[in-house]
Design a protein around this nucleic acid. Structure first.
Lengths: 149, 149
DNA sequence: CAGATCTCAGCTATACTGAAATGC
DNA sequence: CGCATTTCAGTATAGCTGAGATCT
């Protein structure tokens, strides 16, 4: 066993796919733990954010917006409703649908998670300058937009 | 339902954690499908890469190097040995250990996957210029190194 | 003895599929 | 009718934990 026993293979160090995989793995371990410390599960933040920014929506529309499978939306909304962070009401104009609405408690939870994320991003991107952080966000956004079309 | 029915919340568009999560999700769906088309499972590439670049190693050393849990290394090496991509031999100097060695077949499979990754990275980073691709790799490497210490 | 290695059994959560019930 | 929505049941996999057997 040498001092370099845990150095990465060069193929991984040069591969965008694997750099994304490993970097995101570390980021998610930090992120999901911080979410859990606030009683939030993985999908809660994006669902609350979508409801706060775009207003009430059906479950199907929510799932399309934040890329969550229809059946996982059911489970997540069940949890959020149980916590009184959202309300589920029947849509009178289309009785197949539920209308999901964020509550005041939900807005407060979203704000707590926003503040948590500020600190988390600072820890996550600690080795980067302000300009580099902006550039990373810009490059990731370009790649993501391309694959969401 | 409007034309913007699937636009992302601004909170996600501005969050490094969530940009990494979504972008890597798309990248991995492409990547794992391409791996599967070559008969490779998720951990195969990094294990073969580590063995080719650093030579024979014990399972524990491999797991530390590429961040795979000891029990998942067992399963992955079982699969690679079944495919004749690696050889498992007893370490005479420390009889707790197996020594894992890449075979000629394993090197050929690694090369096939290398070539597959070239095309995949081009598709993945299609919207970025050569300079931007290099910059993305550099920024991700800096973040990853920071969290691997 | 403490600690490392390999292996297996099992657990949790994610991401996804299929199908049924209901309504447009 | 075809199609959309919600819900539930079930599958596959990743990532991880605990424990036992073996060895240094």
């Amino acid at each position: 066993m040498t001092a370099e026993d845990d150095a990465f293979p060069e193929r991984i160090r040069a591969s965008p796919l694997w750099l994304l995989t490993y970097t995101t793995g570390h980021a998610q371990r930090l992120g999901w733990a911080a979410m859990a410390a606030h009683g939030a599960r993985r999908y809660h933040y994006v669902l609350l954010a979508a409801l706060e920014e775009f207003g009430p929506a059906s479950q199907a529309a929510l799932g399309r917006r934040v890329e969550i499978d229809r059946s996982d939306v059911v489970a997540a909304i069940n949890e959020l409703a149980e916590l009184n962070y959202v309300e589920r009401t029947l849509d009178a104009s289309d009785r197949r649908r539920n209308t999901i609405t964020i509550t005041e408690d939900g807005r407060r939870q979203l704000q707590r998670l926003d503040e948590m994320l500020l600190g988390l991003h600072d820890e996550l991107l600690a080795p980067l300058s302000t300009e580099e952080r902006t550039e990373l966000v810009r490059l990731l956004s370009r790649v993501l937009d391309h694959h969401r079309m």
